[in-house]
Design a binder for these strands. Structure first.
Lengths: 202, 202
DNA sequence: ATTTTACTTTACACTGTGTAAAGTTGACGT
DNA sequence: ACGTCAACTTTACACAGTGTAAAGTAAAAT
């Protein structure tokens, strides 16, 4: 009992994440989380004011555990815009399966709970920034398709890389993660990259 | 009162659709629908066994009212694969705003109700068939990108044309419908079309 | 005139969230 | 050893929303 070094709060969050990740087709209830954490339902409410805040905390907990910042920052190391785009697509694309469970719960919650909506909005805003940065790197190299503004290109990349697109291709259409990644990269390149001009790069 | 030629069932469905369409951020309850239809909540349950069936019926009602089949069949008139792709993207892309409200309610319901999930799955299956047909027309013209199978191309097109992508670009990112349509067409063309070969078309 | 149809009204069971309050238990300080 | 404090448990209940049940009503159909 006392051999578990985690705080009660962390045990609750870990339990919640495990339930959300584990093929959980059925909605995860507060009592399910409590049971999985080996606590009474009330004990969960002693640690989190409500379900929305628990899910939000779970997302942050997961982000910390998986070091999302480090993962997403990887693409910044790229020297060319093209390489940066590829790394960005793969970094985020490989993180989607990790957050998929909590993402579903949080977006479902967002329909009724403004806090949940705001929390998910923050997440997505960070991803959009990553898209904007990748597009900016392309533009800096003069490799952005000439018929695209950076704004439109970033929005398109963001839409392509939505969790929903991952769900559709990976879960409904049965694609492998490897296929998903390479096809997303090809799709992004096909639309975002301009033709390689002979005398480009000023 | 008796001046309304619609059946009670239709009045309920119309009321439900209006509530779902009307910027309804808040979830639409059975009692809301009853009130909007000018009926008691019980009367709604006399016409539909449960909320899921009502939403499913509302979707079909809307499809009939808007003649979705005719809209989506329009693209079949195209002579070239390229034209067919363009018409298909626009036909479905212009239908998304129409079904958006009911779509949100139905997909939210799908998380807990298998019938709702199946009904939405049917819808999407029809859309996927449209994508498959458009891709097949491209392939017939020898215009499909050589690094794509018809299956992968159809899945990609289907993913691009998801309701979620429309929501992201149109509602979150603030795109106009015209921008959405033209950019989706450009995106699809950029990835799906092969280079125009001089001596193509056998 | 009575039956049927299409309702209304009232009431209640059920699920899941969230609140409230009293009771238990072990660790910790004095 | 004693009290107290924190971290729980247990029990109970309010509330919303769905769905069920049953009795009542009023107009239309037969």
């Amino acid at each position: 009992m006392s051999s578990d070094p985690r705080t009660t709060r962390d045990r609750i969050l870990d339990a919640a994440l495990q339930l959300l990740e584990n093929k959980g087709e059925k909605p995860v209830r507060m009592s399910d989380i409590a049971k999985a954490a080996g606590l009474s339902r009330q004990a969960v409410y002693l640690n989190f004011p409500n379900r929305a805040e628990l899910l939000i905390a779970a997302t942050r907990h997961l982000d910390a555990r998986e070091d999302v910042d480090a993962r997403l920052a990887e693409s910044r190391a790229a020297t060319t815009g093209e390489a940066r785009l590829a790394l960005w697509v793969r970094a985020w694309g490989d993180y989607i399966p990790v957050i998929h469970g909590v993402s579903r719960a949080l977006t479902a919650m967002a329909a009724t709970d403004p806090d949940a909506a705001a929390a998910w909005g923050d997440r997505m805003s960070a991803v959009h920034q990553g898209c904007t940065a990748a597009v900016a790197a392309l533009a800096r190299d003069g490799r952005l398709a000439p018929d695209l503004t950076e704004k439109v290109a970033a929005d398109l990349l963001f839409a392509i890389l939505s969790v929903n697109t991952w769900e559709v291709l990976r879960l409904e259409r049965g694609w492998s993660q490897a296929d998903y990644l390479s096809e997303m990269e090809r799709l992004a390149r096909a639309r975002l990259l301009g033709a390689t001009a002979p005398g480009a790069n000023t």
